[in-house]
Design a protein around this nucleic acid. Structure first.
Length: 569
RNA sequence: CGGGGCAUGGCGCAGUCUGGUAGCGCAUCUGCUUUGGGAGCAGAGGGUCGGCGGUUCGAAUCCGUCUGCCCCGACCA
């Protein structure tokens, strides 16, 4: 591509409403333009990247034996009524009516449609297993779209659905998809991790997410330094402390703590460690009005774990100040486990404390020297907290570390939820009708583009991994308009590189070199070759790798070798 | 949905408090000079100041209303 024929609208200034670096750089590089909240135009430069990601995903899906098809983005409500999700799915589902007042939705996912296809098309176990996939625009009406295409409402997704005669076949199909995902993310050139994940309301037993590691990631993941254990922090189990609870030493005392509501304020006020304090959260119960959850002061509640406790309402709802006032006669900020009449769960770590500090269930008062059994009834023990850096791994090997990740893929063993609800059946070898076991496998194609930038950028701009770079190499001729030799040399190199199948960008604009360098760095082209009279005198081009700080003079006939070697590495 | 904020040329902003008919930087266009890290000079184009209504001799500015967008809220015990 000649840049003189490619409108490249780069911005020197950062648009004010872009918060994360990928969003800023995608706007500055002219890859995307916002159309409305959560809706983006993919400009030619950005679309090239999107297509490259899509291409790798498609190739590996096909290699794994999946069959590509295309389902409508708009789906009739009837199918969603059948699965029960028309009612279950909240306002994230964009619903609409056609001119005959029939209800439709813009598909956020396609389990219903694919199940409908399979029940109509397949009738024998001989046709299983099968895996269908599509790469298609999805819409989810996010509460708060943000971070550009990272959390957009409309986005490009690869979704695949497999159908199996039995669970063993499902596990095999899942394993094949998992391997395909590993190949995909390897090929994309990203640092990533597959982690165990919550299968949530969708059901099924096994589910893994693929995360691109980046400090700005919205998810926290925990992984062990002792073995391959890795899990979303939502799921990572916190093991109970190995040491027994120490004996009580202090007496119970009530102290005045006017206006001291948070653990941070309490530790400053009393000069105690957060680890010696306990916080008591009240959540709504499904039978009793409220349920108390007790955590060590330095720990965070894991809402997913709390939701799974008997007696806790789903979804988890924190009690508000009014409910707390009615039940305890005090405000939030002064709650403690002593003398509570509602069901109480305590995290293992909180339960292992002696002589701890907690709220007194009276305004502006806390208790010190509190001990379980002596002062407060022994609560039910549970794992309630998020794991923290250094916790022992639940795998029994090593300690946990916490990293941040961007979820770019999610694979599930679904089971028969949809095939049963929608009565999708085939005959098995005994002539009996069975509901196939299903797996589903998603990849956020457009999100991968943003995630790649989050992981690969510097203060000058994007640094594309070569497999998804919009162009692999940029040629920067110096003094293009005036120097015939530069034009000849650059033109020749451009043609030769293209003949070798490379994506080449020739910056033939009549601009000063500084502008061209800055643009090339901003849009993140991995390889740069500068062609100038100065170098041509010596029979050399100047080569620079995007990640490098230094130039390298290479002989004219070394270019192909250089780029070949660089692309291989 | 609740709280806060913003809306002025393609982008980033000033002007609003204190009403007098719109300005700066970047970008764009023309000419000349310049050509190894976002050039210089000279000139030019582009804005119903988000919409509607009101107050006023006069509104970007004051009042009301609507719309759009952004941020925070889901860990407070």
């Amino acid at each position: 591509m000649r840049l003189s024929a490619f409108p490249l609208n780069t911005l020197r200034e950062t648009p004010s409403d872009a918060e994360v670096v990928s969003h800023q750089l995608m706007l500055r590089a002219g890859m995307i333009r916002r159309l409305a909240s959560g809706l983006y135009n993919w400009m030619p430069l950005g679309f090239r990247v999107l297509k490259k990601v899509e291409h790798i995903v498609r190739e590996e899906m096909e290699r794994a034996g999946a069959l590509e098809l295309l389902m409508p983005a708009v789906q009739p409500s009837e199918l969603w009524q059948e699965s029960g999700r028309w009612a279950e799915y909240g306002p994230e589902l964009l619903r609409m009516k056609d001119r005959h007042q029939r209800e439709f939705c813009f598909g956020p996912t396609h389990e219903e449609v694919i199940t409908d296809i399979v029940r109509k098309e397949l009738s024998s176990y001989r046709q299983l297993p099968v895996n269908y996939f599509q790469i298609q625009t999805k819409f989810r009406d996010e509460i708060r779209p943000r971070f550009g295409v990272m959390r957009a409402r409309e986005f490009l997704m690869k979704d695949a659905y497999s159908f199996h005669l039995d669970e063993e076949s499902l596990r095999e199909g899942y394993r094949i998809m998992r391997n395909a995902y590993v190949r995909i993310f390897d090929r994309l050139g990203l640092e990533y991790r597959p982690v165990s994940a919550d299968s949530g309301a969708i059901g099924g037993s096994v589910s893994e997410e693929f995360h691109v590691l980046a400090d700005s990631g919205e998810d926290a993941i925990a992984f062990s330094d002792g073995d391959g254990y890795a899990a979303n922090i939502e799921l990572a189990e916190a093991l109970p402390p190995s040491s027994a609870r120490p004996a009580a030493q202090q007496k119970l005392a009530e102290i005045e703590t006017p206006g001291i509501r948070s653990i941070a304020e309490l530790t400053a006020f009393l000069s105690v460690e957060a680890e010696q304090c306990v916080k008591t959260l009240l959540v709504e119960g499904d039978e009793s009005a409220l349920v108390a959850l007790v955590l060590r002061g330095d720990h965070e509640l894991n809402p997913l774990k709390a939701e799974k406790l008997d007696g806790v309402a789903v979804p988890l709802r924190m009690a508000d100040a009014g409910q707390i006032g009615d039940a305890l006669g005090c405000e939030p900020g002064f709650i403690g486990p002593v003398g509570l009449s509602c069901p109480v769960y305590a995290d293992h770590s909180a339960l292992a404390l002696a002589d701890f500090v907690c709220g007194a269930n009276r305004a502006d008062c806390h208790l010190t020297g509190v001990n379980w059994e002596r002062d407060a009834d022994l609560p039910l023990a549970a794992d309630l907290r998020n794991v923290v850096e250094g916790d022992p791994s639940p795998s029994g090997q090593g300690n946990l570390h916490i990293a941040r990740g961007i979820e770019v893929g999610h694979i599930f063993q679904l089971g028969t939820k949809y095939s049963a609800a929608m009565d999708c059946a085939v005959l098995d070898e005994n002539g009996r009708s069975i509901h196939p076991f299903m797996g589903c496998y998603g990849i956020g194609v457009s999100r991968i583009v943003a995630a790649a930038i989050e992981q690969n950028h510097d203060d000058k701009g994007i640094i594309w991994p070569q497999p998804i770079a919009p162009f692999e190499v940029v040629l920067v001729p110096i003094n293009w308009t005036k120097s015939q030799r530069v034009r000849d040399a650059a033109g020749k190199l451009y043609t030769e590189l293209r003949e070798r199948g490379m994506d080449v960008l020739l910056d033939d604009r009549d601009l000063r070199p500084g502008v061209k360098f800055a643009d090339a760095e901003l849009i993140g082209i991995p390889h740069r070759i500068v062609i100038g009279d100065r170098g041509l005198d010596a029979g050399k081009f100047e080569y620079r790798y995007r990640r490098s700080e230094e130039n390298e003079d290479i002989a004219v006939d070394e270019v192909f070798e250089k780029l070949g070697a660089a692309s291989a590495g």
